[in-house]
């Protein structure tokens, strides 16, 4: 019995939205396989980012007051807000891109994808501004790392509760000498050379850079995929005539957006008042 006889339909129709591979019973089954495969990948991504969030929760539970101070002193809530706005908007344009792909409005589909790409560029520009500030403030974890309280810490509202835990004496001297040396290269601090608060700050900024950095890499990968899809579309590749590859990419892009939805309150919006209840 031929394939057509079983299915009662040609697996390779003129309409790319109806075409399906020979090992599928029908188009619907192929669509479901695509979606489930993509979700299986996204589950691994949830595991990946989930582990980072768990690490963050553990350290924030240990030093809630200090984390609030570090965040208030050096993370810009407004820039984080702009980036959240940009990513949510890019999700909307991506959802429209999928809609137009399904309706075969290819002109609008390309326009929506280019718009999504522009939003992604905007996100990276803001991220670059933020990372530059961190670099200038010596907040890149490593030998040059040196935390200074900044504006919020200077008010003394938050820092007071945590100052007791700071080590005095030799550690304070080492800190002063580092301050005098400015950006000059110093050997990585061994245990005891750098005071406790410095090490706590270094862990906070390590988590910050790992979490936002890996999220940023996801954004860059998304942008590369968008370029590939657009080039394939413009060169008339049959692979992107079907809407499913675009829908799959949409799922990935929305996932990247969801990660940022959680990163924003976790890193940027730590209310300093929590120190009153978790000294």
């Amino acid at each position: 019995m031929s394939v057509e006889a079983i299915h009662g339909e040609h697996p390779h129709s003129d309409d790319p939205h109806l075409t399906f591979a020979h090992h599928f019973i029908e188009r619907k089954q192929q669509d479901e396989s695509y979606i489930v495969g993509m979700w299986a990948f996204l589950v691994t991504e949830i595991m990946f980012f989930g582990a980072l969030f768990i690490a963050y929760i553990i350290y924030r539970t240990i030093w809630p007051g200090e984390f609030a101070e570090f965040s208030r002193a050096h993370l810009n809530t407004a820039l984080g807000f702009i980036n959240t706005l940009i990513l949510l908007s890019s999700s909307l344009s991506m959802a429209f891109c999928v809609r137009h792909a399904k309706l075969k409005n290819h002109g609008k589909m390309v326009l929506s994808m280019v718009l999504t790409f522009m939003f992604a560029c905007g996100f990276l520009v803001v991220k670059t501004i933020e990372y530059t500030h961190k670099y200038n403030d010596n907040l890149i974890p490593g030998p040059l790392f040196h935390y200074t309280a900044g504006e919020a810490g200077a008010k003394g509202e938050v820092g007071a509760a945590t100052e007791k835990t700071e080590a005095g004496g030799a550690e304070a001297k080492a800190e002063k000498s580092m301050e005098a040396e400015g950006r000059k290269f110093v050997l990585p601090a061994t245990k005891g050379q750098r005071d406790t608060k410095q090490r706590h700050a270094e862990i906070f900024f390590s988590l910050y850079f790992i979490m936002t950095g890996i999220h940023g890499i996801h954004v860059v990968i998304g942008m590369l995929v968008m370029v590939i899809i657009l080039v394939m579309f413009w060169s008339g590749s049959p692979l992107v005539q079907d809407f499913m590859p675009i829908e799959m990419f949409g799922l990935y892009w929305h996932f990247v957006d969801i990660v940022w939805i959680f990163l924003y309150p976790a890193l940027y919006l730590i209310n300093p008042d929590i120190t009153k209840f978790h000294p």
Partner: peptide, 20 residues
């Protein structure tokens, strides 16, 4: 943080249910 995470879960649910 409880309220903010609850709102974040609401936002993620909207994205997952409708956009995705």
């Amino acid at each position: 943080i409880i309220v903010m995470l609850f709102i974040a879960i609401l936002k993620a649910s909207l994205v997952v249910l409708f956009f995705m």
